[in-house]
Design a binder for these strands. Structure first.
Length: 425
DNA sequence: TCTGGGGTCCTAGGACCC
DNA sequence: TCTGGGGTCCTAGGACCC
């Protein structure tokens, strides 16, 4: 068993942020809505108590709640981003071994604090609250999946004081027995239905399942969940966030859009936004996908959800060059007569901007390919001929390896595969 | 009339290539 | 009675996460 991990999660984050600058909202039900005020994306405890569900379309429920004391806010992501950064900075002062998992969550290694976990967690929680006003919950356990369980338990249990540690099997069993099945990290509706077919309907059933059976019947992803529930860490703490593999910008229109001119405008803005986001991370794209959607909630209307990928001759981070490709893609897929409600732009395969110099990046890629070929030969030699049928896609090679060798860690990076699967070099 | 946005991984089928 | 096979890339869609 490794050192204990903590998952620190801000309570009802967006709703808490909104409350921060308006203390009058304390004790009142508060919800935050998504873009275009479409769906409910955050709820204070009081709003949850009213029965408002996550993701509920606002227009369907506003009639029902207008007479309640409900406070409704449009989302303000700049504010949430700023507050998130402040919370994370405070957590970093408690341990340098920290992975920012999302805008409102971080995993922390508690190595070295084993003998005073509780006091340490209480101190963290109090400091974040005092300095930012944001309440957080802390879950402590030997694996990330169990830390998620602990965090949820801390939130649910009023006497926990916002902190829950699940270090012994008895504590873990007790916590798991109080959880809904789909409360588990990685188990949502569809998977729960499929698991129910074979009699697995509670968190404890899943923990006590045979990981190898789960992998054969389901996937390596779910197998990791089982192992982690059993206390075996499978998902390491990622302190350095890896480069994004793709970047997307998309928006729903307020009303249906019919003309090419309106779509060109939208695709233009999305391209510019995505390109900015990409440049901020010092990446460049090898292509651009443009996609459109008609209204899927109106099956009575004609449906059309096309997408088109245009490859760039050379990876680029230049908005003008990418825009040219975007508009060409849009021209390919646009069909008049449909009522479009959403448009988006996706840069699907990003490379470091520094590797792009004129058209040299494809050249620079050649030695890497050669190394990859050699690595695959080595893997085939070790595991038997044909283990990896490899042409050019590291993604597919990784998939083969995971399928055929349960022991291979979950990765799509072939360099990693070489280290874990190949002969020592 | 009004149903989010941004990610990751996986699967399947068809076009195309040698 | 038989219709090649192995491979890549693309489109489309499903599942999960926050």
């Amino acid at each position: 068993m490794g050192a204990p991990l903590a998952l620190v999660d801000c309570n009802n984050f967006y709703a808490s942020c909104e409350r921060l600058f308006q203390p009058a909202l304390r004790g009142r039900p508060v919800i935050v809505l998504s873009n275009n005020d479409g769906c409910v994306i955050a709820r204070s405890n009081e709003a949850k108590a009213l029965g408002i569900a996550m993701g509920e379309p606002w227009h369907l429920i506003k009639e029902k709640y207008w007479r309640e004391d409900l406070v409704v806010r449009s989302s303000n992501y700049t504010l949430y981003g700023d507050l998130s950064a402040r919370v994370m900075q405070i957590l970093k002062d408690f341990t340098p071994d920290l992975e920012i998992y999302s805008i409102d969550e971080a995993f922390l290694s508690l190595e070295g604090f084993e003998r005073r976990l509780d006091a340490h967690a209480r101190h963290m929680r109090a400091t974040v609250l005092q300095w930012t006003g944001i309440p957080v919950s802390v879950g402590i356990a030997p694996t990330k999946t169990l830390a998620k369980v602990a965090n949820r338990t801390a939130k649910k249990d009023p006497v926990s004081g916002g902190i829950c540690a699940l270090l012994t099997e008895a504590e873990q069993t007790a916590a798991l027995s109080r959880l809904e099945f789909t409360d588990l990290w990685g188990v949502a509706g569809r998977l729960a239905t499929r698991l129910a077919d074979i009699g697995i309907v509670t968190p404890l059933h899943l923990r006590d399942a045979d990981p190898r059976f789960i992998r054969e019947r389901f996937s390596v992803v779910l197998q990791r969940t089982v192992l982690e529930l059993q206390g075996t860490p499978c998902i390491p703490l990622d302190q350095v966030s890896p480069d994004r593999k793709s970047v997307m910008a998309s928006r729903s229109f307020g009303q249906p859009v019919l003309t090419m001119e309106e779509l060109r405008q939208a695709v233009g803005t999305h391209t510019a936004r995505a390109a900015e986001k990409m440049r901020r991370q010092q990446l460049a794209t090898t292509g651009v996908v443009v996609f459109l959607h008609t209204n899927r909630f109106r099956p009575d209307l004609p449906q059309y959800s096309p997408s088109r990928l245009i490859r760039l001759p050379v990876a680029s981070a230049d908005t003008a060059r990418i825009l040219q490709a975007s508009l060409r893609a849009l021209g390919d897929i646009y069909r008049p007569g449909f009522r479009y409600v959403k448009a988006g732009v996706l840069f699907p395969e990003l490379v470091p901007e520094a590797s792009v110099q004129g058209d040299l990046w494809t050249e620079a890629d050649a030695p890497a390919r050669k190394e990859l070929m050699a690595a695959m030969d080595a893997l085939n030699h070790r595991f038997g001929r044909g283990t990896l049928a490899f042409g050019g896609s590291a993604k597919e090679a990784a998939w083969h390896l995971r399928r055929d060798h349960a022991s291979a860690p979950y990765t799509t990076d072939w360099r990693h595969l070489v280290r874990v699967g190949g002969p020592s070099r």
